[in-house]
Write a protein that binds this DNA or RNA. Structure first.
Lengths: 247, 247
DNA sequence: CGTATAATTGACAGGAGTCAATCTGTGTGG
DNA sequence: CCACACAGATTGACTCCTGTCAATTATACG
């Protein structure tokens, strides 16, 4: 279903054209949401759709960064490998998240599909042209990259200062809040990723993740509806934990 | 010595004007180095100098982000505090590094002087105006923020996946390389920060930092010229370590 | 030179990792 | 539709790295 096209000509100043963006699940993404009547069609004009199966690699760290992607549907995983075989997952991406956004010549992370995924793709050069053409897009770009940095700093804080239980509390809150913006149930966290993925994100092992969830459950802070759907019963407590409080 | 001024009028198209930037130690910083004959004076025109004593706070996380700073001389420390009193240092900044660069309304980290520091300061609004006016500056901005993200990802990888010894190896290399760009001796790392600072940066304790340095020394990978000046004897080994290799 | 601060070293404890067994859930084949 | 097999998750026993607490040594400063 993912196929190239530029059959749709941008029509500056009008919204009347029926473009796929309008019923795109990522319509409210950071990239698209703030765009004007002119810039959205211009963005659409340059886009291509691609699909990935679960487990497929989109790109590897240090490869030439030729494209920028936006997640329409599914889950993507950003990670880095160590030469000892360590894997640090640096982000789980959902509908509306941008991938591969860097002015550098090479990607600084690897990206892999965590489920069947549908993406929008742009040539980096053309994307850069749009940034010059539309200051509103450039502003969005800055906001997006700033959010990425903030998330990365959050992760660094968690990895450097928090215990396993505290990291898990923060992780559940993070997932829950992210999913609430794309139709998730508030107060619940659906985990589309494996325990191994969670472990590699939080700098732990699957056993420690498992034990941590058990302890949070026994304390009454969460309850496992199913293995992959968790109810956050004590949001405030979880929040305090994630900020480094002892209790 | 830090005093406001806008006495110097920008002269588009000419470099002849004698502006302080020319003998600024941060002349080759990421921000200033790529600027044209027009944009550098424009940038200078909007700048103010300020000085901080060691230990002084420049701004705190979550405060309104009203200014952007560039380090002229000295060392700045970026950090976040946890509600349990934990401190995660997120970066050590030297001559030429930008501080407080965020499109968000509030700073996402706290900044403190690690030594006596001299800074260039801009109002955020005026800085944003310059970004619109000079696409070359906007491009530099993107490169700078991308570098910040990459550094933050490096730190997250280290904190999540590396042992104390490996983190230290990477830290020494990082400091050494950063200082080489501002007059440091290649193959040496000068540590202007305390062991406590290093510990809070690497997610360790001062004791573990100390023991780690001792072990690296006993293995012959480094040698301590003084307490704060370290020779990196085996660069390749240190690099392998920092990437997660066992040996 | 003496004192205060920082860094190192030592002894011990604890949280997370490792290895292994058990359990759970899912998908398949009879 | 049930039984089985497989992968993933949980739990348990034990180890080890790092943290904690304390003592000693080194460095900076008045």
């Amino acid at each position: 279903m993912g196929n190239n096209r530029s059959r749709f000509s941008a029509r500056p100043g009008t919204y009347s054209g029926k473009i796929e963006c309008f019923d795109c699940p990522a319509r409210m993404s950071d990239l698209c949401v703030g765009l004007s009547n002119t810039s959205l069609p211009a963005l659409y004009e340059q886009s291509t759709h691609i699909n990935l199966d679960k487990g497929e690699t989109l790109f590897l760290s240090d490869q030439p960064s030729e494209h920028i992607f936006n997640v329409r549907e599914g889950t993507m995983t950003l990670y880095r490998m160590g030469s000892g075989g360590q894997r640090q997952i640096l982000g789980f991406l959902f509908t509306g998240d941008l991938i591969g956004i860097t002015p550098d010549a090479a990607y600084n992370v690897s990206a892999q599909a965590g489920s069947a995924v549908s993406l929008c793709r742009w040539d980096k050069d053309k994307f850069d042209d749009l940034l010059v053409l539309y200051p509103a897009m450039a502003k969005q770009y800055r906001l997006i990259t700033s959010k990425l940095l903030t998330q990365s700093l959050n992760l660094a804080f968690a990895l450097g200062q928090l215990t396993a239980e505290q990291r898990l509390a923060g992780f559940l809150l993070h997932i829950s809040q992210r999913q609430a913006r794309i139709g998730g149930i508030p107060g619940f966290a659906a985990l589309p990723m494996s325990r191994m993925d969670i472990a590699d994100y939080l700098g732990l092992t699957i056993e420690t993740v498992s034990r941590g969830l058990t302890r949070l459950r026994k304390k009454g802070f969460i309850s496992l509806v199913t293995r992959d759907l968790i109810e956050l019963s004590e949001l405030k407590t979880l929040l305090r934990l994630s900020q480094g409080d002892d209790a």
